[in-house]
Nucleic acid binder design. Sequence first.
DNA 1: GGACAGGGTGATAACGCTAACATCACTGGC
DNA 2: GCCAGTGATGTTAGCGTTATCACCCTGTCC
Lengths: 349, 349
Amino acid sequence: MTSLDHPGPTAGEGRRRPAVMADVARLAGVSHQTVSRVINGANKVAPETQARVEEAMRLLDYRPSSVARALVTGRSRTVGVIGFNTTLYGPASTLYGIERAAYDADYLTSVVSMPDLDRDSVLRASERLRRHNVEGMLAVAPHQAAIAAVAQLSSQVPIVCVEAGPETDIASVQVDQRGGASAATRHLLELGHETVVHIAGPRDWQEAEIRLAGWRDTLINAGVSPPPPRFGDWSSASGYAHGCELAAQASVSAVFCSNDQMALGVMRAFREAGLSIPADVSIVGFDATPESGFFSPPLTTVRQDFIEVGRQGFDLLRRMIEQEEPADRRLIIPFELIVRMSTAGPRAR
Amino acid sequence: MTSLDHPGPTAGEGRRRPAVMADVARLAGVSHQTVSRVINGANKVAPETQARVEEAMRLLDYRPSSVARALVTGRSRTVGVIGFNTTLYGPASTLYGIERAAYDADYLTSVVSMPDLDRDSVLRASERLRRHNVEGMLAVAPHQAAIAAVAQLSSQVPIVCVEAGPETDIASVQVDQRGGASAATRHLLELGHETVVHIAGPRDWQEAEIRLAGWRDTLINAGVSPPPPRFGDWSSASGYAHGCELAAQASVSAVFCSNDQMALGVMRAFREAGLSIPADVSIVGFDATPESGFFSPPLTTVRQDFIEVGRQGFDLLRRMIEQEEPADRRLIIPFELIVRMSTAGPRAR
DNA sequence: GGACAGGGTGATAACGCTAACATCACTGGC
DNA sequence: GCCAGTGATGTTAGCGTTATCACCCTGTCC
């Protein structure tokens, strides 16, 4: 009698069709609506009824379907993340921060990471996410092209840019890149170096451009005219290549690299050329990867709290989704200069 | 007349309620079922009708709802990933591999990463994912405790363990850890070292245990009795600590570290102690992180193709979901020994 | 003692889609 | 000329939830 032609799942260890709300209702002898009330904050349910329903849920190993709920409420409690190479330390950490914050706020995180981050990839990724009814999106999108694509999307769906974006008015969270670059450069200047060479990241990365600007402006403010910057691709290999060239120039006494990996490559090149760090050349990196404290010598670098960037990014998005007008749509996370052993005063070469 | 009290979205740039299938149908002058047919492989739709429907979709900026589709088909085309610290190079790369493969197969990837990976965390993460109606799950779960939890789940939902698991019969994909550890150890032995010290990963990590076993067995097979292994926590700091102690022991001439980060710490400790690598001590790592080729000196290490592990892991899961009986439920991905400059023959100290 | 409030519950209608069947016009074979 | 076959479409009924409203009770107030 409790089972019709549409048989409820066997109680206990039943491995049949998963139980649905109607099965629970039948077993508990109530309507499915009452079951629903028990699930979402049991407001006006008699304690005894509630207990019976909960027991039935337990017995049937019942799990509410977010899909069905999403259909009727119009809320999927899912946010999408558009990433690219999430293998790198920065993006991976940011993703982790987003993910943790989402979990704590009872949201699920869906990730699409594209091999490239051009306009088209971003659009395709967002298309995929929107079809899956995400309520909003985070773009871990440091590319200029990606930012442009995000700007276009932002009129259609709540979206937050992390690690990017002061030009347009889209919501964003990022570390104070300019300040970090400036502090790194100033640190070297204050040690007595006459000038600072900069190995920048790729030109189409916004972070790279901002650090470049921070470095240049700091030099100019100090009255020294910036040497031509060099451009790497974030990899140690590119740092190594530039390092080999720099090692041949006797005038180089301080190098500021736009990330730790390139700094590692530069250090390797200098060492091979017989130069010692920091006696002959001082080096500063950026990011403060966990390994950077164990380079030889330990690297002076600028810490970015990627996890915090992710957390704040998600929280900003959540507020946009839930219509709480956020205090500020553009958040800046402070940097921290970590002085270790790769920097010292200059000496004649 | 095309609009009732329930107004369709304005054509063109309309920013109103997003269009649904019925809106498209109305605009194209067909039934919603015909629209559905156009969307999913237009089988028996007249070319002219199809064109009209497509035009209507374009005009209304229509996007099918995966949620509604999932509800009726019972297929969400979403897989879940249970991770933990996805900040590390290995897990981050594996995740990326999973994600790419899923994208290519038209699945979406939802990620839940827990700070710890004990039994309870895994269960909570999977609960969250199952409520969101994922069709299967990947566990990037190298912990013993996590593996046990996964084994329990595997009877209820398709699940694949990546980077883990030969003990039970759950589906898994992993690199040949034992072979890699063995090759690393043999490499040092063949260079003439009398024995090899091992700095292992945490005891509750399965990978760490397998590498430890590979190292031990190789030594035993070569007739040398293994020195007591040391245990780190994967961090450079732990490698550094062990390195400081080892540097004091004159007998140490070869060290095999269970990952590159610890190897970096060891190298740093040796250098500080005035030892030179590889002249005084040879060092081998594991993982082949992109930076390891630019350590000083470049590190001899064992490459794991994490991305391939992720790809194969997803593919295995997909086949389980789609009921194609997979050829093999337990996949082993080959390793590659990369000999660089941190290893050489021994010399008296 | 009748009206009224309100706690507790159930019935019914969505949500946006696909599955399954029904319908209708053609075509071609005998 | 009639029937079967088939291509193109429409109609209806769900999928598993929540929203909404209607309905019972009970107790309380004047």
